[in-house]
C-alpha cells in the first residue's frame, strides 16, 4: 500500500518553501507530489524529464504532478504509469492542498474511491503554521485553520526566525493544546521529522519542541471553544458497540468534532488497534505492533468545539457497558 500524505496550511504559511525542500531532496525519490501549479513552486531549473500529460520527473527522483481537476484520477493515473514502468515505483504520494482547503474532503475522496482503497493507505497530514500570522488564524472559532491543525499528524511551525522566542513558545503551547496527538516540529527541521511515520509508530508522547519554558510563552490568542477530552481505560472495550457509537457520534456532531485519535484494546490480550478520525471520516483501523508505554491500555483523544466533554465520556461508557452486556466476545 502506498501512503498518501496531505500537506496543508493557510495561504502564505510557508507550504511552498517546504515543498521546495521536499521536492529537491534525494530522500523524497519515488514520492509523487500533486500540486496545484508546478510553475508557482519556482523549481523549473530542477526539471529533469517532462513526461506525458502533467507529470514531471525532477533531479531528486521526485515525481511532480499538476492536478487539473480530479485528485483520485490523478493518483490512479500515477499508479498505472508506475505499474507500466513509465515512472519510477511510487513509495509515497503527497498532496498539496490550497490554503483555504479543509483536509477532510481530500481524505474523504481518497477513502471513497474503490480502486484507490486497495492501493493507497492514509499517510498522515502535515499542517504548516506561520509563527507570525498563525495565532490570529487559530483564534477564529470554527475556522479552517483550526480544522487544519486538528487534522494534523505533524505540525510544522514556519517563519520562527521572524518571531521572538516568547511568541514562538506561545504559539507552540497553543498548537499543543489544539492538537495534543500531533508531532510538533519546525518547518526547517530534518525531513525525517517532518514526514509522518506509518500508523505503526504511534508516538509514546509526541515531542514538543521548546524555545522557552513550555507554558511561559505570550502573545498567543485564546482558543475559545476548543476542548479536548482524553478517555483512558484498562481492559478491552467492546468493539462492536464502539463502532456503532462513534458512527452515531460523528453522524450527529462531525462538524464540531475535528479529530478522534487513539489506541484501543478490543480483543483481550490482543495487539493495539489505532483509531484515527478527521471530521466525519474514520480511517480504516490499523493494527499497531506494540502498545505505547508497553502496557495494554485504551486511550482515546477527542478534539472538538462546543460540546460537553463529560457527556461524550458518559455516552462512550453507556454504549460500551451495553455492548459488553448484550454482545460479549465468546470465551
Amino acid at each position: 500500500m502506498i501512503p498518501v500524505t496531505v500537506l496543508t496550511g493557510q495561504l502564505g504559511a510557508g507550504k511552498t518553501t517546504l515543498l521546495q525542500r521536499l521536492l529537491t531532496s534525494p530522500q523524497m525519490a519515488g514520492t509523487a507530489v500533486l500540486v496545484n501549479e508546478f510553475g508557482e513552486i519556482g523549481l523549473d531549473h530542477e526539471l529533469l524529464t517532462p513526461l506525458e500529460g502533467e507529470v514531471t520527473l525532477l533531479r531528486s527522483g521526485c515525481i511532480c504532478c499538476t492536478v487539473r481537476d480530479d485528485i483520485a484520477g490523478a493518483i490512479r493515473d500515477l499508479i498505472d504509469r508506475a505499474a507500466r514502468g513509465q515512472i519510477p515505483p511510487l513509495t509515497r504520494v503527497m498532496i498539496e492542498t490550497t490554503g483555504l482547503a479543509d483536509p477532510f474532503p481530500v481524505l474523504s475522496t481518497l477513502s471513497a474511491d474503490p480502486v484507490l482503497r486497495s492501493h493507497v493507505a492514509p499517510g498522515g497530514v502535515i499542517t504548516v503554521v506561520d509563527a507570525i500570522n498563525g495565532p490570529d488564524a487559530l483564534a477564529e472559532a470554527g475556522g479552517m485553520a483550526r480544522r487544519q491543525v486538528a487534522a494534523a499528524d505533524v505540525i510544522a511551525l514556519a517563519k520562527r526566525d521572524l518571531s521572538v522566542p516568547a511568541q514562538t513558545q506561545g504559539t507552540l503551547d497553543q498548537l499543543h493544546r489544539l492538537n495534543p496527538v500531533a508531532q510538533l516540529t519546525f518547518a526547517d527541521a530534518p525531513l525525517s521529522r517532518l514526514l509522518p511515520q506509518g500508523p505503526r509508530d504511534w508516538p509514546e508522547a509526541p515531542e514538543t519542541p521548546a524555545v522557552a519554558a513550555p507554558g511561559s510563552g505570550h502573545g498567543h490568542a485564546d482558543l475559545d471553544g476548543i476542548r479536548t477530552l482524553t478517555i483512558t481505560r484498562p481492559g478491552a472495550i467492546n468493539w462492536t458497540a464502539f463502532g456503532l457509537w462513534l458512527t452515531a457520534l460523528l453522524d450527529s456532531h462531525g462538524d464540531r468534532i475535528h479529530r478522534v485519535k487513539g489506541v484501543l484494546e478490543v480483543d483481550p490480550g490482543g495487539p493495539p488497534v489505532l483509531i484515527n478520525a478527521v471530521g466525519w471520516l474514520v480511517h480504516p483501523p490499523q493494527h499497531l505492533t506494540r502498545w505505547p508505554e508497553g502496557v495494554p491500555h485504551t486511550r482515546l483523544v477527542f478534539i472538538f468545539e462546543d460540546l460537553e466533554p463529560e457527556r461524550i465520556r458518559r455516552s462512550f461508557e453507556a454504549f460500551d457497558r451495553l455492548g459488553h452486556a448484550v454482545a460479549p466476545l465468546p470465551g
Binding site: 500500500m1 505503526r200 468493539w239 462492536t240 463502532g243 456503532l244 458512527t247 480504516p284 483501523p285 490499523q286
Partner: peptide
Amino acid sequence: DDHWSDAVPRAGVYTR
C-alpha cells in the same frame, strides 16, 4: 458495505 468498523480484510487493517 465497507464500513471502517467492519472493514474488508486487507494488510494492516483490523477487522472481524
